[in-house]
């Protein structure tokens, strides 16, 4: 890495064309110059950490508040922990998180069944609304699905 030029203010012409009025984010940003203090600012008290929180690798410390919903668990949790070993810049962060989300869906089904609850997937998907307002489309999709099933079954049978 190139050493920082501490004498940068002595570079001919430094800063002479700077125009504080030419703030491209104006009026969204009320420029104060505090950006140059970086992460040195007054903070609130720290929220106690009572559940596992996966923290971005791009942060030095945890934020003063955070959400505690759905801590990582099960196989999806293992994958999420792996994902958080990599920065937000990497595929190795985001792709495993999407995979974990899909696995988490099945873990949710298993949890429901373990708790003696069979999820009503038709209700959860709000399909009554489709039936009420978009019946033709529902019938069309059902016919398409049935036709695909019949064709696949016929192909499978012929191969056998």
């Amino acid at each position: 890495m190139k050493a920082k030029n501490e004498e940068y203010k002595n570079i001919p012409g430094w800063g002479m064309d700077a125009d504080p009025e030419n703030e491209p984010t104006y009026p969204m940003k009320n420029y104060t110059g505090d950006d140059h203090k970086r992460i040195n600012y007054e903070r609130s008290e720290q929220q106690p950490q009572t559940v596992e929180i996966l923290m971005s690798k791009e942060r030095p410390v945890i934020t003063r508040v955070f959400g505690t919903s759905a801590p990582p668990s099960g196989l999806s949790g293992v994958i999420r922990r792996y994902a958080f070993q990599h920065s937000e810049d990497r595929y190795r962060h985001w792709v495993p998180l999407i995979l974990a989300d899909r696995i988490n869906m099945f873990e949710g089904l298993i949890d429901d069944i373990k708790q003696g609850r069979l999820p009503n997937i038709i209700k959860e998907r709000g399909l009554a609304m489709e039936w009420k307002y978009n019946r033709t489309n529902v019938i069309k999709k059902a016919v398409e699905l049935a036709a695909t099933g019949i064709i696949l079954y016929a192909l499978f049978k012929r191969k056998k």
Binding site: M28, K29, N30, Y31, T32, D34, D35, I39, Y41, R43, S44, I53, L54, M55, S56, E58, R59, I62, T63, R64, V65, F66, F84, E88
Partner: peptide, 16 residues
């Protein structure tokens, strides 16, 4: 402090 309340640095540890 600069009005960028959608970019707070102390409310999300999971992503910057």
């Amino acid at each position: 402090k600069q009005g960028l309340y959608g970019n707070c640095h102390e409310s999300n540890p999971m992503a910057t």
